[in-house]
């Protein structure tokens, strides 16, 4: 029953419309009534502000001088798009996204394999993996910031090749690494749980058959396991990638954007909330939203996943 009810099939819908009975009309009305509050709320907080952002983005508008608001057309977009800072932060954000998702995918997969195979202490392992997932990102940021700190941390002491006074937040490379460590630590559990669900889908029979045919462990992994959990991997990558692209909390807490570690979200936040430049800040908001759409589109296109289907139907 599951698949017929859920998959929104346009052909079937049309056929249904043609022979719509009173009962299905009532069902339709009820269905729409039930989803109405959810839709209304979701749109109130996203669509409406987004439209307002588009509107504000064509003004030069500062909250500290509201009377000086003037229409400037596309000037804010031109300013943003021709500013090297915008491209530097975009590049930095994409870099964070690619590295963290790639690392999380590998570690998350290993964790998922272990959780899938492990027979002892299952509960303990699953409980502990949920702790990073549940912990507040700001707390994770602080924990790692202090861990990397050269006056009160332990990382310098534990790494034999580093001088104890090494300042992790003193240059781009090490600062961004510290930020990524916090991000990866906090979100790998989410990745590994999604992958674990995918692993559970791979049939043991197929694995056995491959084993009988003499396939090595490595061959089985690549020929049987991974292809069969493709959709789970895609969902995990898509959601984590978009999440990573929006990175904000860790950067705010750990470097506040110093040493070129700013992300697009952080840049937008600074214009809007810290500098009250609602005009150009709104233009950045619109650009940020568009870039998220582009990334989502790219991932969907590259991996040819039907998003709704993947999430709804596995």
């Amino acid at each position: 029953m599951t698949s017929t009810v859920v998959a929104p099939d346009s052909k079937k819908d049309r056929r249904k419309t043609a022979q719509m009975s009173d009962r299905s009309k009532a069902e339709e009305r009820l269905g729409q009534k039930l989803v109405l509050p959810a839709i209304a709320l979701m749109l109130l907080v996203t669509a409406f502000p987004m439209l307002r952002a588009i509107y504000l983005s064509v003004f030069n508008y500062s909250l500290t001088a509201p009377d000086d608001r003037e229409f400037v057309g596309a000037q804010n977009y031109i300013t943003a798009l021709t500013d090297p800072l915008f491209w530097e932060t975009t590049l930095n954000t994409v870099f964070i996204m690619v590295v963290t998702v790639a690392v999380e995918l590998v570690i998350g997969f290993i964790f998922a394999m272990v959780m899938h195979r492990v027979i002892f202490a299952r509960g303990v392992i699953r409980t502990s993996i949920l702790i990073p997932y549940g912990i507040i990102t700001v707390v994770s940021g602080f924990a790692w910031q202090f861990a990397f700190s050269n006056s009160n941390g332990f990382v310098n002491e534990w790494l034999p090749f580093l001088d104890n006074s090494f300042n992790w937040f003193g240059e781009y490379g090490s600062a961004i690494a510290a930020i990524m460590v916090s991000e990866i630590w906090k979100t790998t559990p989410f990745m590994s749980l999604l992958l674990l669900a995918g692993l559970a889908q791979v049939s043991e029979d197929m694995l056995e058959a491959a084993k009988v045919d003499g396939a090595t462990w490595w061959q089985r992994l690549w020929k049987v396991v991974l292809p069969n959990m493709r959709s789970a991997i895609m969902v995990a990558v898509l959601f984590r990638a978009l999440d990573a692209y929006r990175i904000f909390d860790n950067i705010f807490v750990m470097t506040a954007g110093a040493q070129g570690t700013e992300s697009v979200s952080f840049l937008t936040y600074r214009q809007v909330i810290e500098q009250f430049q609602l005009g150009i800040g709104s233009a950045l908001s619109v650009l940020l939203f568009l870039s998220v759409l582009v990334i989502a589109g790219l991932i969907v296109k590259i991996f040819r996943v039907d998003l709704a289907a993947a999430r709804q139907e596995g």
Binding site: E28, G31, Q32, M42, S265, V286, Q312
Partner: peptide, 29 residues
């Protein structure tokens, strides 16, 4: 239930799950 707009709900939900929150705080404020 079968009803028109189901796909719209699912798509909206999906877009919102991906929404860059920071882009909203200015207008929301």
């Amino acid at each position: 239930l079968e009803f028109k707009g189901k796909k719209f709900v699912l798509t909206t939900a999906l877009i919102i799950a991906m929404f860059p929150v920071v882009a909203l705080v200015g207008p929301l404020f």
